[in-house]
Design a binder for these strands. Structure first.
Lengths: 116, 116
DNA sequence: GGTGATTGTTTCGCTACCGTATCATTCTCG
DNA sequence: CGAGAATGATACGGTAGCGAAACAATCACC
């Protein structure tokens, strides 16, 4: 089932949800960082630095830095790939899952209060 | 009519739309900047620096800087309030409207391709 | 009309991000 | 084994954001 959004609905949903995100965000993630986090948690693994860089259309240092930041916040974890030790496998954490759960709640909440 | 989103739908919508935003964004706006822009265009005027700062829950220099940046991009315009010359009225521009229209299209597009 | 409040901007020191280029490690394959 | 490719991290110089504090301009009001 697909979602039929009106232009007004789409922008109002984004507005109210991102507003609440800004107001409440303890972590103050960048748009890019948030995209990376969502990608890690919503797309089936494995996730590598190179793969994420290609998907996002950014350079590899951007991913490394984002993983540094989000790793320090406990939202994400790095592990060496034992099969190919050049690779880094990016893994999920409990804190990261909780963070995204809260984000989902905000979006659902604001969608519920939407008036076209 | 309100929008009944499932947790999966909510996060996938945010993921795919923000991903496309990152991939395609010529302007590379911050989450805060995007929130400010949406607020200016979706909430009835007038908009002032102080009002925006209070709404977003940030300090005034944040708004001033965001208006500087987005003003340089032509997304927003400043005008002095003639009634009270201390106030700055933030106004919309054609380019800003087009930018948000494009954002709305992305969200609608990704909502349409959603599978729960 | 002058004092204090209000508004937006600027300054300061700091932190974090950016892209390019380079590096260390590891793998591939002849 | 050894040369070249591939992967992720780091170094570098530059830019832009941050909060706190100080600032200039304007208003309000006695």
């Amino acid at each position: 089932m697909s979602l039929a959004l009106s232009p007004s609905q789409a922008l109002h949903l984004w507005h109210s949800a991102s507003l609440r995100l800004v107001q409440s965000d303890a972590h103050d993630l960048t748009l890019r960082q948030l995209s990376i986090l969502l990608h890690i948690y919503l797309v089936p693994p494995p996730h590598t630095v190179r793969g994420l860089a290609a998907t996002l259309g950014v350079t590899k240092p951007v991913i490394t830095r984002a993983l540094d930041s989000m790793g320090a916040l406990g939202l994400v974890r790095r592990t060496r790939d034992e099969k190919d030790k050049r690779n880094v496998i990016i893994q999920r954490t409990v804190d990261g899952a909780l963070y995204l759960e809260r984000l989902g709640d905000i979006i659902i909440d604001e969608g519920r209060e939407l008036t076209p």
